[in-house]
Design a protein around this nucleic acid. Structure first.
Lengths: 119, 119
DNA sequence: CGCATATTCAACCGTCTGGTTGACCATTCC
DNA sequence: GGAATGGTCAACCAGACGGTTGAATATGCG
């Protein structure tokens, strides 16, 4: 009885996948380009993309031999609403957001997880 | 490195744990009472509670021989804000959002889960 | 003290997850 | 047609996950 919240939350539980979503926030990307900054195989990224697509968080569209990945932020809505039921955090509290960033920022500026940095 | 978003999202990815959080929305509860509606062992529930506590989503306080579980909705804030960055990315400071992400990256029973949402 | 209650610990088990590698389509280019 | 490019598939592996059971550790009570 796996529901949509299960797949969305567990998709978001992986930092690589969250990083991918963040990249897609900028622009649609081909699979190979998505994979480029990560220190793992293309096949691994392909699996991550499949999980994100399964959760509805991205859509993949094949054009020629390239598959374009596009963010589908609507899939986050249910999960977001669920969480908001627990806090009084307003749906759009940008001040809180900026304060959060200021507090939590501190370090790091690339997607390099373990050893290899981005090219 | 495992950041706070990892533990929160993966804690929320399990329907049993979401149901527990929902119950705690009503009131603080003892471990045994939390376990009561579920068709699984007390030990299993105890583990779920440990995971929720590890993620900061609940606090456990021992009073006498009973351990009381209390919701800590603040732990959801970061994850909620993160998701909201995707929901309405127009007003959000995208640059700050991505810097934050880069930093974060370095680093048969009673409940029908998906309907069991906050009141 | 001795027993019941509340909760965790420890060992174990099957399944899922995230990664690897190498082979396999599909498409474009020469 | 044949080679290079873009992506996925399949098999495999180590480790995490979600559950079980039985023993252990408080604490409260008569």
């Amino acid at each position: 009885m796996t529901g949509p919240l299960d797949s969305v939350f567990s998709a978001l539980a992986d930092p690589t996948r969250r990083a991918i979503l963040t990249m897609l926030l900028e622009d649609d990307m081909a699979v190979t380009d998505v994979a480029e900054p990560f220190a793992m195989s293309l096949a691994a990224i392909s699996k991550h993309l499949a999980i994100l697509a399964e959760a509805g968080l991205i859509a993949r569209e094949k054009r020629g031999r390239v598959i374009w990945c596009k963010l589908e932020p609507d899939a986050m809505r249910a999960a977001s609403v669920w969480m908001q039921g627990f806090g009084q955090f307003e749906p759009v509290d940008l001040d809180a957001f900026e304060r959060f960033l200021a507090g939590e920022l501190a370090d790091g500026d690339t997607f390099s997880q373990d050893s290899a940095g981005p090219a």
